[in-house]
């Protein structure tokens, strides 16, 4: 096993932990953090797999994709926090009801 696969496998595990958290955690703040963890996992996989080039320079395209992905993740997190803050102000509750309607 090379370093590349080790990092990529770590990314897969982070993705799994994040997905578990998004579904299982009750508190919304935790869910948002879990979502970010999931994203970090995907980014780590992209960065690790970009390092499989024969020379010493990694493939720049996945790096650019990760930068784009990070910006998207920041935007989504900011919007989630804005929603969460407003919801908390209106209800004083930090999680979602089970009844979806």
């Amino acid at each position: 096993m090379t370093t590349v696969t080790l990092y990529a496998l770590c990314g897969v595990i982070l993705f799994g932990i994040g997905f578990y958290g998004v579904i299982i955690c009750r508190h919304l703040l935790r869910k948002v953090m879990a979502l970010n963890l999931m994203g970090t996992g995907v980014f780590l996989i992209l960065i690790a797999l970009a390092r499989r080039t024969p020379g010493d320079r990694p493939d720049p395209v996945p790096h650019a994709m990760v930068l784009t992905g990070i910006v998207v993740a920041v935007s989504a997190t900011a919007l989630a926090l804005a929603l969460l803050r407003r919801l908390h102000r209106e209800t004083e509750i930090g999680d979602l009801p089970h009844d979806a309607k």
């Binding site: 998004v22 209106e90 979602l96």
Partner: peptide, 23 residues
């Protein structure tokens, strides 16, 4: 607000699934 947050969490995890597939 609740619906939007639930949608956000689901849709964003879905996007990450898609992105991992693309990766």
């Amino acid at each position: 607000l609740q619906a939007a947050l639930r949608y956000l969490l689901i849709a964003m995890s879905a996007s990450l699934f898609y992105l991992l597939g693309v990766a």
